[in-house]
Write a protein that binds this DNA or RNA. Structure first.
Lengths: 157, 157
DNA sequence: GTCCGTGCAAAACCTTTGCACGAGA
DNA sequence: TCTCGTGCAAAGGTTTTGCACGGAC
């Protein structure tokens, strides 16, 4: 129940239920997506997918990720840098992000107290919470997340 | 000491200190910016600035807002919708946002408890907080923020 | 007078879409 | 077979920049 293949099966089922087709491209893209740590941009997904299916094009990655998002198996997230990133999502689960400004690494966390506080804040302002976005940007202070240069671009500016 | 003109004076000083010029355009843009409630897009700022200085162009608004951001008098904020919005910022002050998904209105709030919690979360993960972004999206449940359709586009899709 | 600033328009960047061919069911 | 999916390339939308003229100091 915790194997990555389960997500693939869910994806295939979801496609089948809607009369959509399971293609090599969709499988390649979904596989690299579920197999990765998440938080990948379309470009990164394209690169990875190409390793399995060199013929994959950007548009297909784009459309497949939209489908995955629609199916609930992926969630889109627009970080401060700008472009959209995707991460696998599990029904009912939620997390926010902690981004290391030193190495660019994205961590996840979940804190119910923050969730509760924002409910309260929203109520105070006459709103009912629909969704939220909470990102903490920080600097690594431990060797656990060392001085690795940002891995977003392979070019050393 | 709490008049909007103070911000204008700060802006003029900041320009002068760096050998930059105080132009009609920069003044017009800064005035409408400080005079507004904030959270304006470049396009909105352009429209407002044009009322004072019809000759103002988009590029100048763009560049002036970059300058204001650099000076610390404005802060850029990229909400989920995509484009960048600017809001006046006061040194040392901080707030987060509450966005009404019904009418598009953007409210501000400040909650020290949330700030403290995120410090704690970051520490737990070995990071020192540099900045953060917290946006709560919600639906109006009070007449205070009524059923006005989104004012982002004047076209009614 | 000098240099910075401006406006226009084009470039850059990412996302989204149209179209004709190819593949899955 | 028949429809859906794909890849290419072009369109869209926003941000960013180059250039020649005009204005601030």
């Amino acid at each position: 129940m915790s194997q990555p293949s389960t997500q693939m099966e869910q994806f295939r089922s979801w496609l089948a239920e809607r009369g959509l087709k399971v293609t090599r491209q969709r499988e390649a893209i979904a596989e690299v997506f579920f197999g990765s740590g998440g938080h990948l941009s379309l470009e990164e997904l394209l690169e990875l997918a190409k390793e399995q299916q060199p013929s994959v094009g950007y548009a297909t990655v784009y459309r497949t990720m939209k489908i995955l998002a629609e199916s609930g198996l992926a969630s889109e997230h627009k970080f401060a840098e700008g472009n959209v990133r995707y991460e696998p999502s599990v029904e009912g689960e939620h997390h926010d992000h902690l981004i290391c400004v030193t190495c660019g690494k994205i961590l996840e966390y979940e804190d119910e107290r923050v969730e509760r506080l924002q409910e309260e804040v929203a109520r105070k302002h006459g709103l009912r919470v629909v969704s939220h976005r909470h990102e903490i940007y920080g600097e690594c202070v431990r060797p656990a997340c060392p001085d690795r240069p940002p891995g977003r671009h392979a070019n050393g500016d």
